[in-house]
Design a protein around this nucleic acid. Structure first.
Lengths: 210, 210
DNA sequence: CGTACTTTTGAATCGCATCAAATCTGGTGG
DNA sequence: CCACCAGATTTGATGCGATTCAAAAGTACG
């Protein structure tokens, strides 16, 4: 039988994907390799949880549709696990979509649980992963509680970037969604901040001026 | 030496505190018992992480002060762990305050880590705890991305309550902070929803009308 | 070259934040 | 028991800023 190890260059992946670096051999061989098209649904709300998803290339996002049909992003992952919190759930609480052509690894839940029990270093990494996700989400809640577009932008650059400098890894339109703003509001706020001399913009490179 | 077991009626606590139910004996005896006054700081941003905090009675909250001096709530815990995500951090990323007279258990970090390694059932409970926290935070981000006060209120009742009915366990003023609104906006939205016949309010009992 | 998408700008509207102040509440101490 | 105080609740008036709807210009890709 052909396994993931035949398809995948693990050493290269590990170099590129910190999250994958400590996946034990026993778990690797049980993984499934999946290529998803843009806009392809990975799972739907209510589906039974059968796999843990690791995004290798591209982007996957967790979304929920409000009653107005408006999409809300719960998680966005480029190179990392997605829906980690569903590891102990029976069914999914949201939908997962590939934003673009995306490569994923699917680990069967049972094997994943077994690896978490047996391999100490893997377990520690996993717990750290969960803690990081919590801190990231707390930062996002903090940001969304700010009332003005400008404040949210600054908060984002300061918490996601380093030293007031940040290189965006997404379009501004999707950034606007992360910030809980319309894209128009984001464009205007950015322009205002530029002309006020509070921000420097060069392509995807943003720098806060003191 | 006097231990926590002398002060604390564990069976009673366990009945009242699901989160405490699986704390192993070895960890229990190392716990410290703390009574905090209202507004007392439990730890400050930058403090080294020495303990894991479990709220027994009262309420503790994690906050961060924005540049405008406005307080943002990152976590609020009544009867459960607080700052779980700091278990693997060296220092705290936010302040912790007791909202009211509060009783806490403090578990030394080292003992906590040891218990996580040694006691399978405790470890599983802990991982579940982290996953639940992630899902709760995702729901909150989803809520904060809604643009109107009314939508946030409905979302909160539907996700935190059951079947469109919810009993508030906090003042409306602090609820407003959770919703990312001013208290005035919350009061007005509630009144509007009542007069529109979309919501029924009796003290802390809220019910969405279909 | 056409299609899909992002980026940008404009105008009108609405809702929330803000400031101010009155009332109500529970709890404390005299 | 009452006076008092801190905090929560409620109402009002005002202005700003984000949403919304609309549309044009730019950009990537097959």
């Amino acid at each position: 039988m052909k396994t993931v190890n035949d398809v995948l260059d693990w050493p290269a992946l590990i170099a590129a994907q910190p999250a994958a670096s400590l996946i034990p051999e026993t778990l690797r061989v049980s993984a499934r390799w999946v290529e998803a098209d843009a806009h392809e649904m990975l799972f739907l709300i209510g589906d039974p949880v059968r796999h843990v998803y690791l995004v290798i290339r591209g982007e996957a996002r967790l979304v929920r549709l409000g009653r107005n049909g408006c999409e809300v992003i719960l998680q966005r992952s480029r190179g990392g696990f997605i829906a980690e919190a569903s590891l102990d759930s029976r069914t999914y609480h949201c939908d997962a979509i590939a934003s673009e052509p995306t490569t994923l690894l699917l680990f069967p839940i049972a094997a994943f649980h077994a690896a978490l029990e047996d391999v100490i270093v893997f377990r520690k990494t996993w717990q750290l992963q969960l803690a990081r996700e919590i801190q990231k989400l707390r930062a996002q809640c903090e940001r969304l509680c700010l009332h003005s577009a400008t404040e949210r932008i600054i908060h984002f650059i300061e918490s996601e970037g380093s030293d007031g400098v940040l290189t965006l890894s997404q379009s501004r339109k999707s950034w606007a969604k992360d910030l809980g703003l319309t894209h128009e509001a984001l464009y205007r706020a950015l322009k205002r901040m530029q002309s006020d001399g509070r921000l420097e913009v060069e392509g995807n490179h943003l720098a806060i001026k003191p």
